[in-house]
């Protein structure tokens, strides 16, 4: 089945996500410290860093799964705050892929995919199913449409989760450690899907430990530690000429194995 997709064109000069001096605390614990970040249209940003560095928290602030206390985040010019209308708009533009897939186990794969288009965006069932099948084909899993999530392998579940996110045609995709919960032999199939998305020009912010992926497709790699951005650079410089000691240590630890 052919379907026209609006190919997003890469235009780094046009900012789609902006974090301006964002600060966040959990109680007394300062998790995000003066985060400043601009992501351009179609840009692929990979966020790396040790666990507890605040990288997941940061991207979860972008679609307001977490609230922040100071600063400002905007998506496509819309401020992410407690305003319900803004929130609805932001969430229609942004979707997220989680570490633990978070598919809805009581719904079949297909029902998982058509849920948001039908209930949030008011599409007809026929239209929603067509879109869903298109994306299931795209992640090579169309034959599993009527199965339930728990009947699939981890890799398959994560591909379904990506398809589910794509179904509402978001302009921006956030990936929160999408491969960390997978068995090693399944990481490849998920990364392949992510790479093909990147090549299509979707704006992506990925928190991941897959440095191969970062090298291959990232426009920019960001290193976070202790709640702040320590270093950012193009992949080449990031991996081969790290400046800060903390990044050097981090790279040694993850690349030595």
């Amino acid at each position: 089945m052919e379907k026209k997709i609006i190919e997003s064109t890469k235009d780094l000069s046009q900012t789609v996500i902006e974090l301006d001096n964002v600060n966040k605390w959990y109680g007394d614990f300062h998790v995000l410290k003066d985060i400043n970040l601009k992501v351009g249209k179609g840009e692929i940003v990979v966020v790396a860093g040790p666990s507890g560095s605040g990288k997941s928290t940061m991207i979860r602030c972008i679609n307001r799964l977490e609230e922040y206390q100071e600063g400002k985040i905007s998506v496509d010019g819309i401020t992410v705050n407690s305003d319900i209308k803004n929130l609805r708009q932001v969430r229609s533009k942004v979707d997220m892929v989680f570490q633990h897939f978070n598919l809805f186990p009581h719904l079949s794969v297909l029902d998982n995919l058509i849920l948001a288009p039908m209930h949030v965006y008011g599409r007809s069932k026929k239209e929603a199913v067509e879109t869903a099948m298109y994306y299931l084909n795209k992640v090579n899993i169309a034959e599993q449409a009527n199965k339930y999530p728990n009947q699939l392998s981890g890799g398959q579940q994560q591909r379904v989760a990506i398809a589910r996110a794509l179904c509402k045609s978001p302009e921006i995709m956030l990936f929160d450690e999408p491969t960390s919960a997978l068995d090693p032999e399944m990481i490849g199939e998920v990364l392949d899907v992510m790479i093909s998305l990147a090549e299509e020009g979707k704006t992506m912010v990925c928190v991941t430990h897959e440095m191969g992926f970062a090298r291959k497709v990232a426009d920019r790699v960001i290193f976070m530690d202790a709640g702040q951005i320590v270093e950012e650079n193009d992949p080449e410089t990031f991996f081969h000429h790290p400046e800060s000691d903390r990044l050097k240590l981090f790279l040694e630890q993850i690349l030595d194995h």
Partner: peptide
């Protein structure tokens, strides 16, 4: 918790989240 988060990320309202995702389970 992930079920709530996935529903939020998809843009479901509180009512939809409860009715379609959380309560059935």
């Amino acid at each position: 918790k992930g079920q709530y988060e996935a529903a939020d990320a998809l843009g479901l309202t509180y009512g939809q989240k409860m009715r379609l995702i959380i309560l059935p389970q």
